[in-house]
Design a protein around this nucleic acid. Sequence first.
RNA 1: GGGCUCGUAGCUUAGUCUGGUUGGAGCGCUCGGCUGAUAACCGAGAGGUCCGGAGUUCAAAUCUCCGCGGGCCCA
Length: 774
Amino acid sequence: MLAWTTTPWTLFGNIALAVHPEHTYVKVKEKEEILILAEARLDALDGEYEIIGRLKGKDLEGKEYEQLFEVPVKGESHRVITADFVTLEEGTGVVHIAPAFGEDDYEVCRDKGLGFSQPVDSKGQFTSEIPFPSLVGVFVKDADKRIIEMLEQRGLLYKESTYLHSYPFCWRCGSPLLYYARESWFIGMKSLRDKLIANNEKINWYPEHLKYGRFGNFLENIEDWALSRERFWGTPLNIWICEECGAECCVGSIGELKERAKGLLQESDFDLHRPYIDEVVLRCAECGGEMRRVVDVIDCWYDSGAAPFAQWHYPFEHEEFKQNFPANFITEAIDQTRGWFYSLLAVSTAIFDEPPYLNVLSLGHILDEKGVKMSKSKGNVVDITSILNTTGADALRWYFFTACPPWEDIRFSELAIVERQKKFLNTLWNSYFFFVTYASIDEFNPEEKAIAIEKRSAMDRWIMSRLNSLIKEVIGSLERFEIHLAARRVEDFVIDDLSNWYIRRSRRRFWVVEENFDKDCAYLTLYEVLVALCKLLAPFVPFLTEHIYQNIVRTVLEEEEQESVHLCDYPSPDESLIDADLEDSMDLVTKLVEAGRRARADAGIKIRQPLKEVVVVCSKEKREKVASLAGILKDELNVREVKFEEKSEFVAEERYKQVGIDEDTALFLDISLDKSLIEEGLVRDLVRRIQGMRKDLDLDYTAKIEIMYKGDEEVKEAINRFSDYICEETLAESIEEGKASSSAKEIYEKRWKIGKKEVYLAILTARKNNKFYI
RNA sequence: GGGCUCGUAGCUUAGUCUGGUUGGAGCGCUCGGCUGAUAACCGAGAGGUCCGGAGUUCAAAUCUCCGCGGGCCCA
């Protein structure tokens, strides 16, 4: 028989040769020798040969052969056996079987009733059982060459060659590992297979594919659990064996242990761990003999699986365990599928026949920016503390929440964190800061204002509707563990709905100086939105929301509210505030605004230039929806009038620029200009410049100024006609022609070009301090 | 070697389960506009081998198969 091996040292443990039962084997004559090997592996032969016979693998079964080396064997040995795992892809189709050094080998020998030999000790060195004194005590991997030489000397070696194959190495120190049969204790998980599968049915997996994919497949092919470990540290294996009669027992409690122990256990130095427990000897209930503990410890994965009841001291105490089992939710990364997720199910199924948890969220891993695993040796590890110190924990968290579904791997990008921070956290902060800025100026106190929602403006009712729709959607997404969708929805709300629409559209309401019902509505609405948003976002962005909460809730409503936003109830949507029609209408308005802006861009007329009118051509239904919000359209598009027309009645003249919205809706912008429109445009331009200059000076929002100007007749005329408007918009006490000169005031002057006109503008402000006086 | 999973614009991604208008957004880029909370924002434009190949179909980013690359687990 021409057998092959990649591990010559295992030949001392040879017990059998395996062939595949169904494959064809050949007898060949090469020189004076007769060899048997698989027909498909004839390539393995070097020289000229002649096939002198053919037979099936199973015809070889039971043939005996001479042992290579004289090593004592317990039981039957040195027979040809058949096994399905023999392949024809490599070697000779005849496999050397050593049950001490391979799982398949061990199992096939056990199944065929063959014996066992173990000529290697636990240090990996040959024992005196081998017939070569010079190799006794030698590490097996160091003996390969000498074994090959010995075979050659005895004419038993057909051929030696270098062969690339995979081999296990220690992941820590890199030394080659040996497969080595050891005695172990097992939990018979195979007998629990159906129960494991049934319990898995009761569990919701996120992502779903794990349930019947990776995890389900694993359960279908479950193996027994090798429970014992030959280590020192660990939970001692609670199995005791009688030295006299071989009886086995597990001890159920410390009390039982004390009761059965030979000799009293000292209370003071009693300890269940090794090495103390190793000293304890029990009295055998069967024969009265001495029982000693199996020295092994328990696989620490068993401990992990026992956590749900072990943490509550079950079965000695029941109450807390009962209240907390099964867990509603568990999360770990994907690598724990066959780790903790399994150990929990295995132990729980074995002991209670119940699933230990009802919902599992399996997380992806964080990879480097190229999508490759981070590792010290590759040098692509990110130092998270520096990111926490610079960008902050909230930004990091928000990035993780929004970047991808929680169960997918994420490519870590510091740049993306900064981007999320700028985009979302800054906008949230600025929305809050806008509120605080004006609420402080006006000393707004929400406790003094209680205005029913229905009395507030359409804009206020709209943002409240959006807020409650948002809360509903966020809760729905979170219940499906779609954290990314929840977070992205909040982000859209804050950026688009709150900041870019509600606050931008409502700004002027906050600027009004005197007490005013509409201003109160605006304050109250924005306040309510910010508070709800804080509570909604608290689990995502814990630090920023807490800061905002402390400042706008705790300082104002100390009596009624929780000490921290993290102690507040999570918001629940108020369905009565959700107005789907209003949301639809606003949606249509924003579409019209976009269309109007496009029309302006096409015509080359900037938004600051007022226009005469815009005509919305649409159905009656749409007209009714939008009519109440026409003021917004008028403002946004900077037109004097918004008109509605039915499609059949409207004929577009040349002065209109048309943009279609959908099949039955179009917008027509009148782009013709007259003197008064041009004049108003000029005034708007002047105001815009003055505001810019205020900002250059970093003036307080309430600081008063005086304005001086120089310009042509048209500028002069426009300013005279609109001086009240200009003063109101820019908080100016006066606007006068001429060059600024004053020793009592600070002067900031600038020459502007507006269209083709040259304009000189100066802002005079009270001196804040004598910073030039040294 | 096996199982599961991911691959879409320079980058981050939606759409894939359930095939069907011209594959949708954000960052970055170009042009224009807006701005008394915003490091912002708004409009337009350029930018795509939907990892590759084959198949099913009237029709494929989407379904099937074979590859390639990343990830996890197992051997």
